[in-house]
Design a protein around this nucleic acid. Structure first.
Lengths: 243, 243
DNA sequence: CATGTTCAGATCCTATAGGGACGCCTCCAG
DNA sequence: CTGGAGGCGTCCCTATAGGATCTGAACATG
């Protein structure tokens, strides 16, 4: 994909962009941000499979930018663990999760997310509660077909639910800690990982968390979240005993 | 960029570097890594004060490299929260901590570090225990003078103690989560922050953590670490009730 | 047929050039 | 003396060029 003529692009970039290239660098700024978003979306959508090479020059050609912003975007992405730099061989998408990786990830989530739920409970307000309820409604109504595209909405709602709780702690460090984990969780969900086996139970667990939050009982919220994550781990481990 | 004579530099870069520039780009690779390390050291040492601007071109001149690797290093650094990008005005060192920031940071540490201690306890081995004991010895013997340079070793040993415990969980995600926090802790220690008030108590608390670890009681290790962090918070809050 | 060598392509990494915007200082007019 | 305008310098941001290395295939040889 090399965008043919010039000036007119496929339209990947938001409205604030214009035709750089050529002569007038009109748009200015944050081109690297768009590259970052684009790469992140590709990773999340599964367009870039684990282990695949991410060429700097190639990506620059695809997105019709110079290698410099691509390099900057990849440097940021590397810090999240989504891609790895192999020395002087370029970047690669991080390899698939092993069983041990998954266990570690769940261990880390168990350390952080129940605390998030407890703190979020203390700092909840009607607006935030409404956001959570809205997300849970989306989770319930999302289609859950067999193919990836059919439960994409479900996974996104699931991720958003946990992310909202992290944000509602009003603690930038906990938000950051969860964000680092959440990206991995999301990536794991998409690949070899846990599908939506037993979605009904998962929804019920989310409902329990939300009930505890709305009832204003921090301890119960913490316990409900811990129980949910443990159940997620159990289901995933039972599903994929392979390897 | 003219960097005086040439070839002879202040000597910032490790031995593996050579005189690129000129004609032969001999060294090759990872130049951005050295820039990253250099900037990180400057931040930790306090050479770069909070709020100070970090010019891309200026840093490139100082380190005698081109702006490209500096840009890449700063992009990575931004993701850690040590520096912030202000849109199109360049990078700045993150501002000093407020009381609320400190409280948030301790809240996050309380969520993660006691769990780390518990898990590290289960996965401890003689070699690792020896490392911890060594670090604690260094902590006890480190000079604790009034000026920064005089308790730098103390702070480094303190940081290393906590970092070792995180690493001993054998969980990459927990290591990453602590690393993100630990950098902030270290930075906070150096600035407005908590000095070494009541170092004797702090040392005793570290000793308690180590005792619990060596005794093989995970619950006690978790409790000791939680108690330590709470005490750190109390001392810092009592010290700087200002603002 | 197997193996070592060579060559070409692709890629990474760094350096340099150029365009545009902001901030500061100086100078001039009221 | 004070306020505004203009020039200058600095900086960020992107694009392009060039050197060095690695990978893969084609080819020659035992």
């Amino acid at each position: 994909m090399q965008k043919a003529s010039n000036g007119t692009r496929a339209g990947n970039l938001p409205e604030d962009q214009t035709g750089r290239k050529g002569s007038r660098t009109v748009s200015r700024q944050v081109l690297a941000d768009h590259v970052y978003e684009e790469l992140l979306a590709s990773l999340m959508d599964g367009r870039l499979e684990p282990g695949a090479a991410v060429s700097i020059d190639g990506t620059a050609r695809d997105l019709d930018v110079s290698p410099t912003p691509v390099r900057e975007a990849l440097a940021r992405l590397e810090h999240t663990g989504m891609v790895r730099r192999v020395a002087l061989k370029g970047y690669r998408v991080a390899p698939v999760f092993t069983r041990e990786d998954f266990a570690d990830l769940m261990e880390a989530r168990l350390a952080i997310e129940p605390v998030n739920a407890r703190l979020a409970c203390a700092r909840l307000n009607p607006h935030r509660l409404a956001e959570l309820e809205q997300t849970l409604t989306e989770l319930k109504s999302a289609p859950r077909g067999p193919s990836f595209a059919e439960y994409k909405d479900y996974l996104e709602a699931d991720e958003r639910f946990h992310q909202l709780i992290a944000q509602q702690t009003d603690n930038q460090f906990l938000v950051g800690a969860y964000a680092a984990l959440g990206g991995q969780v999301q990536r794991f969900r998409l690949f070899g990982g846990v599908g939506i086996t037993d979605a009904e139970n998962a929804i019920a667990e989310h409902q329990s968390v939300l009930d505890a939050l709305s009832s204003g009982d921090p301890e119960q919220a913490e316990a409900a979240m811990a129980a949910h994550i443990q159940k997620v781990r159990e289901r995933a481990m039972a599903d994929a005993p392979e390897e």
